[in-house]
Design a protein around this nucleic acid. Sequence first.
DNA 1: GACGATGTAAAACGCTCGTTTTACATCGGT
DNA 2: ACCGATGTAAAACGAGCGTTTTACATCGTC
Lengths: 181, 181
Amino acid sequence: MGVDIKTHIISRAEPVFDENGFAATGMDRLTQAAQVSSRTLYKHLGGKTELICAVLDARRQRFFDQLDVDSVDALFAALETWARTEGARGCFFLRAQGEMGGREPAVAAQVSNYRRELHERIARVLANDLGEAADGDLLDQILVLFEGATSMASYRGPAAFAAARSAAARLLNRTTGHANQ
Amino acid sequence: MGVDIKTHIISRAEPVFDENGFAATGMDRLTQAAQVSSRTLYKHLGGKTELICAVLDARRQRFFDQLDVDSVDALFAALETWARTEGARGCFFLRAQGEMGGREPAVAAQVSNYRRELHERIARVLANDLGEAADGDLLDQILVLFEGATSMASYRGPAAFAAARSAAARLLNRTTGHANQ
DNA sequence: GACGATGTAAAACGCTCGTTTTACATCGGT
DNA sequence: ACCGATGTAAAACGAGCGTTTTACATCGTC
């Protein structure tokens, strides 16, 4: 077989959840998307909750693979590229948390994984950009911009990334866009 | 009667949707929360979709009533106060859009109303703060910070507002928190 | 004091969901 | 040639959903 069925089902399920929501997506649409029978899906994944967790795990890895950059500016550029190719419907993990996290601890755990890795990644990129470890306040500011761009992009598109990018540059004392005094 | 039943049902439904999600909340929990029979709820609201729209409308009014401020700094302070009293589970309207907006145009319309008013409000506050109308780029930067603080507060709490606030001050050339150069 | 409006309580309806089960096809390895 | 593993197709399940309906209580008003 080419790729194993489990990976295939997970990758086909991801855009379906992304576009239709988690709770609102029925198992029939997932089997149809993966072109497998429901029996096969249950044999390989166990159930809907486990499938959602596997999708979250796969997306996290894919997301951070694409965000493997060296500067804050490149970080927002990579985020914009992600949104352009994958679509921007608000943070996938925040939505998963809102829809399932309260009732499914396994989903909440996956969301926590994502947030921890996001924090680490921003700290790493920022340290590399500055040449030294950034203080927590600046890190939080960049994190706010990252979250904000993700949310705002769902209804304002590329303008969200442009705004986040220029704001980050100013916070790093790299004057772009607006005059600094 | 004290307040009319329709308003009562709406105000009781809001925290239930906020805490359990829209799709996942059943009508029985809403009737139970409002202490009315299902027949009364349907007579006054029409159905679940109309109830959700009414809840969104009420929340928007309440939200912007509390955000009636004169400066950007006061805007983020008011947002923090809101989060402290109402809870922070991510943007209520973004979640409504993700769960129902795709299938229910009336919900999507309410979300659009909120976003338009948010944009106007930030423009007004910013103009009042600067003494002149702000350019679109700065407005978008503040909007990113607003959205980002709302999202990030759901898992980092007050740190999100502190970060957004100090970042906004720097973008407005009011150096606080970090040294400028 | 009968009446209409307005409320409750609870059963029922039709639908969809996640999941399991039944019956059958395919195919590589010994 | 056959067997076990692995797949499909589709029916069936129990539960929960949004909604409607039936039956009955309450109460201000003419």
